[in-house]
Design a protein around this nucleic acid. Structure first.
Length: 478
RNA sequence: GGCGCGGUGGCGAAGUGGCUAACGCCGCGGUCUGCAAAACCGCUAUUCGCCGGUUCAAAUCCGGCCCGCGCCUCCA
């Protein structure tokens, strides 16, 4: 089965095959490092991380590059407010970025290039653009001349004419045309600056991405991703720069995730509904945030509200319970050992496991439909639960296979579980719980329900959930 | 003004010509349980914003209308 992805460049779903067999080169625009990341950053982070995981599941070698924009107006302003160097602001928020990304169970990219470390490459790119006649200097600034690049507007589906008609023309006499954009900005006093053939300054807003993408992935790489709001002008400009500079196609597939709203409104500082990942993570489990983000197709808009996050939290618990049940069943059945003769129920489950695995991948093959894939995963959970609950002696082989598939889809691909199951690494806790549970079991045998219930209630208050099962009690941290 | 997206049960969300409109959450009933929890079973949209049209057949195609939202300016 081949993978189909919607390509913004062509406006339709296309069969995806990497240009180099077995190897996918992808670039995703990363955050500007002037603050903790917000929900708008979280969506592409999670969506493209999941896509990357899926491609790996499909046996591709994925080179995943995500940049940090560590030099730009927002970083500089922040630095000025705090009276510290711009790069130390960036350093701080890059560290914090990883904290949030880890909480969301985002795998590390292959590479995180930073603008400030690629000034030379950027200058070389601009020089090449000037040599080829696509750029001009004006008072220490360098601009890209949009008119010289006829394909401008292909990605966003606008023509320069249309844009001129609607756009408010900014007052900037240095530009030959309002649509021209800065490749290099002359430094104002007190701003971080690098020497260049045009005097001290810093890179413009778009040149960093095209330069770093070309440097690490080469021309014609496979996937370029980001939020839909980057289509214009950011990605349009990246294409113009890169293709004007190299004369080769820049990226093959352009993927864009939809917007985020909060309580039906666009998230913005002025509306007072600007949420950081850690704001939400303090009220809901980060993995539930991840599940929530994957519950909607990546190209559709998604609205954050408490009800949705709560539902995701419950859904996540459901999947986690299945994972736990599976794990317990495996322990009871002992290690590797040969499987017992499979019962009819076992055979049925074994068949369903493969069927649902196929449904799961078919959904992701169809423009990465995670909502549909999740439906298959929930179906799988239900069938596994049903089998384990209704079978006195589960078939070891079937359980093992079900556990493997469940783990592959739920964790390896969707990244919903985070740390590996099983081991409670705290021997002391383990021992204390054994002690408490044996005391409680004695109480239960005496039919001293008051004591048994009190223990359960007090443990719950401490964050430990007790469940009595036919096989004895079990517990988990809440 | 230009370009674009969406309106599916109480909430969220799949489904783009034809099996009983997925899946999750919530709610209700039941099984299990000392009671719970977890789990399982059942119920919850004859109907997919509204009105027409095409078709043997439409949530799915066409036309019109209503409503909500976004981009065109830094933004994921």
């Amino acid at each position: 089965m081949s993978i189909y992805l919607y390509n913004t460049l062509t406006g339709r779903k296309e069969e995806f095959t990497p240009s180099e067999p077995g190897r996918v080169r992808m670039y995703v625009c990363g955050p500007t490092t002037y603050n903790y990341i917000h929900l708008g950053n979280a969506r592409p982070l999670v969506v493209f991380d999941a896509l990357r995981r899926y491609l790996e599941y499909r046996n591709y070698d994925v080179i995943y590059v995500q940049n940090f924009t560590d030099i730009d107006d927002k970083v500089i302003n922040r630095a000025r407010e705090e009276g510290v160097p711009a790069l130390s602001i960036a350093e701080r928020y890059i560290e914090e970025f990883f904290r949030d990304a880890d909480a969301l169970n985002v795998k590390r990219a292959s590479l995180y290039p930073r603008v400030s470390q690629h000034i030379r490459d950027i200058i070389a790119a601009i020089e090449e653009l000037m040599r080829r006649g696509f750029a001009y200097e004006a008072g220490g600034d360098v601009y890209f001349e949009v008119e010289k690049f006829p394909a401008y507007g292909r990605l966003s589906g606008r023509t320069p004419g249309e844009m001129r008609a609607g756009a408010r023309v900014e007052v900037n006499t240095a530009k030959r045309n309002p649509l021209d954009f800065a490749l290099w900005k002359a430094a104002c006093p007190g701003e971080p600056a690098w020497d260049s053939p045009w005097g001290p300054g810093r890179p413009g807003w778009h040149i960093e991405c095209s330069t770093m993408a070309l440097k690490y992935l080469g021309t014609g790489f496979d996937i370029h991703g980001g939020g839909a709001d980057l289509i214009f002008p950011h990605h349009e400009n990246e294409i113009a720069q890169a293709e004007a500079q190299t004369g080769c196609p820049f990226a093959r597939f352009w993927l864009h995730n939809g917007f985020i709203t909060v309580n039906q409104e666009k998230m913005s500082k002025s509306k007072g509904n600007f949420f950081l990942v850690r704001d939400i993570a303090s009220r809901f489990r980060p993995l539930a945030v991840r599940l929530f983000l994957l519950s909607t197709h990546y190209r559709s808009p998604i609205d954050f509200d408490d009800a949705g996050l709560l539902a995701a939290e419950k859904g996540l618990e459901r999947l986690e319970n299945t994972r736990r049940l599976l794990n317990e069943a495996r322990c009871h059945l002992g290690g590797a050992g040969g499987s017992t003769a499979s019962s009819e129920k076992g055979a049925t489950l074994a068949g369903r496991v493969e069927e649902l695995r196929r449904e799961f991948t078919a959904a992701l093959d169809d423009d990465f439909n995670t909502a549909r894939a999740l439906a298959a995963l929930y179906d799988l959970a239900r069938e596994i639960n049903s089998y384990l609950a209704g079978t006195a002696r589960p078939d070891a082989g079937v359980v093992k296979r079900a556990a493997t598939v469940f783990e592959e889809l739920g964790e390896n691909v969707l990244g919903l579980f985070g740390r590996p199951q099983q081991q409670v690494d705290d021997a002391l806790l383990e021992g204390l719980m054994d002690l408490i549970l044996s005391i409680r079991q004695e109480a239960r045998q005496r039919k001293d329900w008051a004591t048994a219930d009190a223990i359960r209630d007090r443990l719950k208050a401490l964050g430990i959930i007790l469940e009595d099962t036919p096989r004895g009690p079990r517990w988990k941290k809440s």
